[in-house]
Amino acid sequence: MQLVETFIAKKIETPIRFQEYAVGVFKTIPTKSGIKKAIKKGLVFIDGTLATTSKYISGGEKIELFESEKSSTFKRLKLDLEVLFEDDYLAIIYKPAGILVSGNKFVTIANALSQNLQKSNQPDAVKPQPIHRLDYQTSGLLLVGKTSSAIIKLSELFQNKEITKTYHAIAIGKMCLGGTINLKVDNKNSSTQFNVLKSVISKRFEFLNLVELKPKTGRKHQIRKHLSCIGHQILGDKNYGNELLKLKGKGLYLHASTLEFVHPFSKKKIFNTKELSKKFKKIFSSVIPNEE
């Protein structure tokens, strides 16, 4: 057998069964079912002894994962993610455009979280899980829960509208300086505040506008639908708006810029910002400053 990964367990207050503790420990096995299969095949050792699902972990143990020399046992997803904030309960990562958050595909943000985040030492630690969605074409900040209690608490913060999300988009056409869009999305009341930060003249589109947006509700494709409904579709949007104004090959100019909320456990204010990408900068010189 060949050694794949080695992990030294951190000290924990209450010992926990290895089967539960090991979820998220190995980058190549993110699920509990995968851990069980590896143990059953004799590929996991704890302090040099063959691991069992009933073994308790208290901290300091050397945990080793092997794979058979005859075949590659685990299909590995190699996807490096930028981690902007992380503690034992949650993380904030940058999602690049062109990658699914989750789903049936192999290459998703959800499948890459375990290899990019540290294993939580909390007794209810689970495989890291995205708390909300970002469209396939949208870049920006994504909030992740690392424990069962954190996932519940963060979901409640979203439901109670206690997490402030700010987006930036490039919208087409001559716009007013700002306002609130109150239009139903999927027959549900929806509201988005917007503020035009800068406008430039465009030969093809008349005007292009750098717009800051704060959705007050979280409907699917809300920002894209709202801007399209008032006649200012997002540059690069192939689904909503005038067919003649659709831009091909450049992607969607929509970015989840900031996340702001009170940490449900530490009670500290969390504020994270991710600057606009190069394609935004090519059109507008003034962008969101980096977080200090």
Rank of each mutant, 00 (worst) to 15 (best):
L183D: 13
E243M: 13
S191T: 04
G34C: 13
V4L: 12
E69S: 15
A91V: 02
K119V: 08
G218H: 01
K75D: 03
Q222P: 02
S71V: 13
L227K: 03
R204P: 03
T273R: 13
K225P: 02
D80H: 11
D47C: 06
L143D: 07
I99L: 07
L154W: 06
P15F: 08
F280Q: 01
T6K: 14
I163F: 11
T53V: 14
A9I: 07
L134T: 05
P15N: 15
L177T: 12
N187G: 06
I46S: 12
V107T: 09
S33Q: 15
A38W: 09
F280S: 04
C229K: 14
I163D: 03
K146P: 06
L141Y: 01
P289T: 07
N121L: 04
P215Y: 01
A22S: 15
T14Y: 06
V126W: 03
H255K: 12
T164K: 15
F205S: 02
S120E: 04
K41H: 14
L141I: 10
T31K: 15
F18L: 14
H221W: 05
I288V: 13
A9M: 09
K248V: 07
S54R: 15
L235Y: 02
K225T: 01
D88W: 05
I170S: 03
F194N: 00
M1F: 05
T6F: 03
A112Q: 05
P264S: 09
S257W: 02
V144Y: 01
S71K: 11
V107M: 09
E61P: 07
F74N: 15
F205T: 02
Q137R: 15
N290F: 06
Q193I: 05
L77A: 08
S54I: 09
P215W: 00
K267G: 03
A112I: 01
G236E: 04
Y240R: 14
L245E: 08
K62S: 12
K146N: 10
K27R: 15
K55Q: 11
R204H: 08
Y94R: 13
P264R: 07
L252T: 09
K27F: 08
V83S: 04
T217I: 04
A91W: 03
F284Y: 07
G241A: 09
S190T: 07
K78V: 05
L50F: 13
L43V: 14
L65W: 09
L117M: 10
V101F: 00
K75F: 00
K32Q: 12
G241C: 03
Q2P: 13
A38L: 08
K282D: 07
G48E: 06
H221R: 12
L210N: 01
G98L: 01
C229A: 14
H221D: 02
D237V: 08
K32W: 03
S139G: 13
T258I: 13
L177I: 08
E69W: 02
K281E: 05
K281D: 00
I288S: 04
K225D: 00
L113R: 03
I181A: 00
I172M: 02
I39L: 06
V262H: 12
L141C: 06
A150Y: 01
